[in-house]
Design a protein around this nucleic acid. Structure first.
Length: 576
RNA sequence: CGGGGUGUGGCUCAGUUUGGUAGAGUGCUUGGUUCGGGACCAAGAGGCCGCGGGUUCGAGUCCCGCCACUCCGACCA
């Protein structure tokens, strides 16, 4: 490819709106252009990178028995009504009508399509297990896109669906897929991606993992234990509070006028938030009764956990407008008798000598124990994990301090179970001739986001440093001063022919100064650079270097192909 | 959906307070001098100042409405 012909300008200045490195460089380098919020055109360099990523994904999916298909982008609402998702999903699902007035939608994921296919093509147990996958455009009408390709509305995704005759077989295949994902991420140059336990959300199912690129600019918070290897999304991470054993003390009623917050209370009584019991009140979608969660004062309620526990959406309530029998600001577990569903968070279990609301205005109790004696009639059937993980919490598995890190989700895997196969009436005939419902798993990777993630991980001050496995070209050939020196132009042209025979070469054939040529080369991030210029006239040499600065050498003209070959081999071997 | 911000040549931005012929840098075109880390000189092309109303002799600038983009939060299959 001639750089003089490459479509896509490169900019010297940082685009105004971009803050993430990948966003800045992919705009400056002519990789992407925005068309609308969260909707982008990919230019040739980006298209070449995603094609490389897709090829790696295909190889690994094929290697674990995947069969590539292509589902439609536009689907009839009818199909999604079968699973119930046409009505249960909000405005992220883009709905429309066709010319005959039928409700249609843009696919944001393809569980329905995969079941639609499988239920008519795989009706005998002899077909199982199997996995089908596709690499295709998805549209999710995100309320807020950001960060260039990190979070968009239209994107390319590899999504795979596996079908099994038993939970054990799904679990077995899930592990196989987990390993395939690790290989994919290592091969595209991100061996540091970690898998974390994740919330299954509205997808249904029990077990799920997300593959996270650790990055300060990530949108997700992760609990990662450096001691035992435990890792989980904070949304899904159990919380274990550091607990101090202390003696019981007598219960006392305290005057606490106007102390409606934990901070007020601690200031007045000279105690700390972890010695208090906080009550959080939530309205529940579709229910009259509110939910009250008792939790240790230094923790917050994780609404995702509560939502899952309650089985419906929840909204925090701040005053007694809709529940007059609750004494806001002074709610406590002792003698609490309002009409509400009450939950106790696990952070309270076993705590003694706590301060809590007395359920009367301007009064609190101290010396309350979270024991059957201390709580009396309100002693709960159980303590549940409803707290939001914080930095500095102890690991829920080994009890040592865990880290809280930020991450960018690059892929996810779910054990779906029968949510879609059952709701959509998919059965196969087992060996006894009886109908059975298949058990499903699904597995996704965002291709564009992965490209952006690679850029986040591999760049310097001047541009991306693409791993050779995904680089848009392997070799960047520059002719410096070629317009003036015919020997340089001729040598570069000849090298272009030779190197192109075996590799992808981008040839900067323009008549520009060295500074411009090098700046553009940095933005294109091609791993091996060949510079024909002053060295040729001086001592007949050409510079061969790598973008990552691990190698630079002046080699004789006829030695260039071998030197290039050696560097490509070395960089390729490093990826593994 | 709540709260902020910004819309002016391809890109980055002045100009808006106090209304009076549309600006700079960069990029682009042409000619010349340069030529290993974003060179220099000269001459050019390129703008419905986001859109629609209004006020005014006159609006990029003031008023009203709308739209788009963006940041923080909520949401995220």
């Amino acid at each position: 490819m001639l750089l003089s012909q490459l479509i896509g300008e490169r900019y010297r200045e940082k685009p105004g709106d971009a803050t993430m490195a990948s966003h800045i460089f992919m705009l400056r380098g002519g990789y992407i252009r925005q068309v609308a919020s969260g909707i982008y055109t990919l230019l040739p360099p980006a298209k070449r990178i995603t094609a490389k990523i897709e090829a790696i994904i295909r190889q690994e999916m094929d290697a674990i028995g995947g069969q590539e298909v292509l589902f439609p982008v536009v689907m009839p609402a009818e199909l999604w009504r079968e699973s119930g998702r046409y009505d249960s999903i909000g405005s992220e699902l883009l709905r429309m009508r066709d010319r005959t007035g039928h409700d249609m939608l843009l696919g944001m994921t393809h569980e329905e399509a995969s079941v639609h296919l499988a239920r008519s093509e795989a009706t005998s147990y002899t077909r199982f297990p199997f996995m089908i996958y596709q690499i295709q455009t998805k549209f999710r009408d995100e309320p807020r896109s950001r960060g260039g390709l990190i979070r968009v509305r239209e994107f390319t995704m590899k999504d795979a669906y596996s079908f099994h005759t038993s939970q054990e077989d799904l679990a077995r295949y899930y592990e196989i897929c987990h390993k395939a994902y690790e290989r994919i991420f290592a091969r595209v140059g991100l061996p540091g991606i970690v898998s974390v336990k994740s919330d299954t959300g509205m997808m249904g199912g029990k077990v799920a993992h997300e593959f996270m690129l650790l990055s300060d600019s990530g949108e997700d918070s992760l609990v990662i234990c450096p001691h035992c290897g435990f890792s989980a999304n904070v949304e899904a991470s159990p919380v274990r509070a550091a607990h101090e054993e202390r003696p019981s003390r007598p219960v006392r009623k305290l005057e606490t006028p106007h102390c409606k917050t934990i901070d007020d209370l601690c200031a007045l009584l000279g105690t700390t938030p972890d010695r208090t019991v906080k009550a959080c009140v939530f309205a529940v979608e579709g229910r009259r009764k509110p939910v009250v969660v008792f939790i240790r004062g230094d923790f917050e309620v994780n609404e995702a956990k509560l939502r899952q526990r309650v089985g419906a959406d929840v909204f925090p309530l701040a005053d007694s407008a809709s529940c007059p029998d609750i004494c806001f600001g002074f709610i406590g577990p002792v003698g609490f008798s309002a009409d509400a569903d009450v939950w106790f968070d696990a952070t309270l279990e076993g705590e003694k000598d706590m301060v809590c609301g007395a359920n009367e205005a301007d009064l609190h109790l101290s010396g309350v124990d979270m024991t059957p004696e201390g709580l009396g009639a309100n002693w709960p059937a159980g303590f549940f994990d409803l707290a939001k993980a914080r930095a500095g919490d102890v690991c829920p598995v080994c009890g040592k301090p865990a880290d809280l890190r930020r991450g960018i989700e690059m892929g996810n895997i779910f054990q779906l179970g029968t949510k879609y196969s059952a709701s959509m009436g998919y059965t196969y005939t087992d060996a006894d001739g009886k109908p059975q419902t298949p058990i499903m798993g699904c597995y996704g990777i965002g291709v564009g986001r992965l490209m952006a993630g690679i850029c986040e991980e591999h760049h310097d001050d001047y541009g991306p440093v693409w791993p050779i496995s995904v680089a848009p070209w392997q070799i960047h050939l520059c002719a410096i001063g070629g317009a003036k020196d015919p020997a340089v132009a001729e040598a570069a042209r000849q090298l272009y022919g030779e190197l192109s025979a075996r590799h992808e070469v981008i040839f900067d054939d323009r008549n520009v100064t060295a500074g411009v040529a090098f700046a553009d080369a940095d933005l294109l991030g091609v791993p091996v650079r060949v510079i024909v210029g002053r060295g040729l006239g001086r001592d007949g040499t050409v510079e061969v270097a790598t973008r990552d600065k691990s190698y630079r050498e002046n080699v004789p003209l006829d030695g260039v192909p071998a030197a290039v070959e050696a560097q490509i081999a070395r960089l390729t071997a490093e990826i593994g």
